[in-house]
């Protein structure tokens, strides 16, 4: 999962990525890989408590969101969601379904399904930028 995240992180530049999957599916682990590819060397903590963890990296700013605790989507407005979606940074959003209506369409939608001990990932590009990312994606076994 970390390796796939790293491959994804290499392909990603800016934009919005949704990560959907149940508790324990590996969303934060995937984000850890993406952040590692972007040059982050420290820990990647679960942002469940704080809603968002910012990472100022040489490759640009990455915001790691976790909307698990969101009561209703309009709370995103109170936390100033638009300031984060500035087009220049990379926004990784876990539990995007809780922010429906207040989040833009993602460039890339990653769905993680649990299959016994393993995981099945689906990556869907929803914009031209997203397609560009998938074209650049280089996954090795």
């Amino acid at each position: 999962m970390v390796a796939l995240g790293e491959a994804l992180g290499t392909a990603l530049e800016s934009g919005v990525v949704f990560l959907q999957g149940t508790l324990g599916a590996g969303k934060t682990t995937l984000c850890r890989g993406i952040l590692r590819a972007k040059g982050h060397t420290g820990a990647v903590k679960s942002p469940t408590f704080t809603l968002v963890e910012p990472y100022q990296l040489a490759a640009g700013t990455v915001y790691h969101f976790d909307l698990y605790r969101l009561g209703s989507a309009d709370e995103l407005e109170y936390m100033g969601i638009r300031d984060y979606l500035d087009g220049r940074s990379l926004c990784l959003v876990e539990w995007p379904e809780r922010g429906r209506g207040f989040l833009p369409e993602p460039d890339l939608h990653v769905t993680i399904d649990i299959h016994r001990q393993g995981r099945i990932l689906q990556l869907a590009a929803l914009t031209a930028a997203g397609e560009h990312i998938l074209n650049r994606l280089d996954v090795k076994e």
């Binding site: 324990g24 903590k45 469940t48």
Partner: peptide, 18 residues
């Protein structure tokens, strides 16, 4: 030392949810 990902209490909360 500290947690590299979830806090212990958070793990309790999420396991409880499951």
């Amino acid at each position: 030392g500290e947690s590299l990902d979830d806090a212990a209490g958070e793990a309790f909360d999420k396991a409880a949810k499951m």
